[in-house]
């Protein structure tokens, strides 16, 4: 009874990857009437020398680092705060996690047109009301803007996981520490953070899977621009393949994306497991 799932997954994983690998060593552009021939590693070579490619790798890493850092820092702090009892906590918690369920294209346009728009946006109106010049977010700091809207979406996820993990915190130990005169910051730093090591590792891994492949949020806001300022690897492959119709080059990019994701995964897995051992 296992075989339908296993074989379908195997096909879903292996076949497209094999075809991508095959295309990646061929000269194959849909613009040139589908004439294809073997050209070795030329696509890879071309890609690696392209400054746009390097830029895409850097952007991918910046998005990953920016969102991971902000969601983990604020996620742990929020979870710590929500460990205390206060009136209306259940409702407040629902409001905090709501952004996670907003679909990516709504998230993109909500921030681009309603919040960060330099003329109609809420932030612009707020800036004018206090007498500052509004910022053209997606024009001036496009990558930061993308990181902000992605953090808004993923912070609830980190928060929810940390909050769930807090339930297994040893209450007696906390109480003993506070009787010994530990302040709230000491509690957070020496008791809560170490307790959250494992969930932090889990959050890093899962967010990394999704953040390496960010697409819709870029597609619906900047379209990778201005220039290549917000083009990540996923968006680069998309634009090479489906906008410039260069199947060979896009496939080489796809293979590089797989290698890249695996390097990141191994790297993260190592540092996460080292942290776990230290705990």
């Amino acid at each position: 009874m296992l075989w339908p799932s296993v074989s379908l997954l195997l096909v879903w994983m292996i076949v497209p990857l094999a075809i991508t690998l095959y295309f990646s060593v061929r000269r194959y552009s849909l613009m040139r009437s589908g004439q294809t021939r073997f050209n070795g590693l030329e696509n890879y070579w071309y890609l690696l020398r392209d400054p746009g490619f390097l830029h895409a790798v850097v952007n991918t890493l910046l998005i990953l680092a920016g969102v991971l850092a902000s969601t983990i820092i604020f996620g742990t702090l929020f979870a710590w705060l929500y460990d205390y009892e206060f009136p209306g906590k259940r409702v407040a918690r629902l409001l905090v996690i709501a952004p996670f369920f907003v679909m990516p294209t709504v998230n993109a346009l909500l921030w681009k047109d309603l919040m960060m728009h330099p003329i109609y946006g809420f932030l612009a109106a707020l800036a004018r009301a206090v007498g500052i010049n509004p910022i053209d977010w997606f024009g001036r700091v496009p990558l930061t803007s993308i990181i902000i809207l992605l953090s808004w979406q993923w912070l609830p996820f980190a928060f929810l996981i940390f909050l769930t993990a807090m339930q297994s915190l040893n209450r007696e130990q906390l109480e003993a520490a506070s009787l010994d005169g530990a302040g709230p910051w000491q509690t957070f730093w020496y008791q809560i953070l170490p307790h959250l090591r494992r969930p932090i590792g889990a959050v890093i891994m899962i967010e990394a899977i999704f953040l390496l492949s960010v697409f819709a949020e870029i597609f619906a806001t900047t379209g990778g621009g201005p220039g290549t300022a917000t083009t990540n690897l996923t968006y680069l492959v998309y634009s090479l393949g489906l906008l410039q119709f260069d199947v060979g080059l896009a496939s080489a990019g796809g293979i590089v994306a797989v290698i890249f994701a695996n390097i990141i995964a191994v790297f993260l897995m190592r540092s996460v497991s080292r942290n776990l051992r230290a705990a």
């Binding site: 497209p16 075809i19 991508t20 390496l212 697409f215 690897l233 492959v237 998309y238 496939s251």
Partner: peptide, 16 residues
Amino acid sequence: TKMMPPVSALIPIYLL
């Protein structure tokens, strides 16, 4: 299998 970036399958799936 979730570690595979979906974009690596985009071109073959699209053409298929």
